[in-house]
Design a protein around this nucleic acid. Sequence first.
DNA 1: CCGACAGGGTTCCGATATGGAACCCTCTCT
DNA 2: AGAGAGGGTTCCATATCGGAACCCTGTCGG
Lengths: 151, 151
Amino acid sequence: MKWNELHEDACPVARGLSVIGDRWTMLVVRDCFMGIRRFDQMQQRLGITRHVLADRLRKLEADGVLRREAYQERPLRYEYRLTDKGKALYPILVTLIDWANTNMPVEGGPSVVLTSRATQDPIRPKLIDAETGEEITTRSVLAVPNADQSD
Amino acid sequence: MKWNELHEDACPVARGLSVIGDRWTMLVVRDCFMGIRRFDQMQQRLGITRHVLADRLRKLEADGVLRREAYQERPLRYEYRLTDKGKALYPILVTLIDWANTNMPVEGGPSVVLTSRATQDPIRPKLIDAETGEEITTRSVLAVPNADQSD
DNA sequence: CCGACAGGGTTCCGATATGGAACCCTCTCT
DNA sequence: AGAGAGGGTTCCATATCGGAACCCTGTCGG
């Protein structure tokens, strides 16, 4: 299996990673969630090379995660915004933040914390089944190969 | 910012990605959750080169996500198992699966579905705050820079 | 009219990382 | 002795990345 074949892979983990499993992509997405929309801002914040950033933005647009929009004409300037598909990545980002804050603490405490917009209280994410409300753990939930597929 | 500096970065997203933000790592972790423990099995399933697989396993062990354990002596053979820190990645994996199944459907339906171990019913993951039970969305929860830090 | 600057890129080159295949080492089995 | 199994390592060609320079459209100040 090569990296560029992942896009078509039967496994959803592989397909998902073909979009966001790259070194920089989730950092770009993070910035988008933080309201960063412009090339130069991203480039400065990330310290990524302009070349690679341009490439990632193109791919994210092609994958439907970002949308490129002119925010002015003359001179023509573009900004990047999350599409609905991109916004749907929020749970992944939040879960990742929680994992890192819990499992890779850094001295001086976390630089970013999850906070309720309404109450300003800190948030501790928990994954449940939308139907039953049961918590999702390795013990309660199984990722199983679908019946009519061969993996 | 270079890739190998991410490990120490103040941002939890960056720190998390320094561990799992690599092309292959989450696929290795996926296999571990599926009960795959041995080098050759992984290598065959992933189609990754042995070289890269050995490197990823070493890194995951160094990062405390996997633990290498001898399952026999004479000849000495090792297998890899998730540590608690590794098991804590489950919500990320589940959320990723759900995102891909929803946003990157593949013809013939998903090859892997999330299922309740108890009832065999399909699971639809939902992220809530452990305290209030409120759903976590871009509207309800903010990832804010911590007070006593400059990002 | 000229030079400087903004914003969003592209080009080029040397350094890393990845893909593919072969090889190695320690046992066991026949 | 020869053929695996299991878990690697080595070598080389190709792909991707990091760094820095350059380009293009248009604005602004003098």
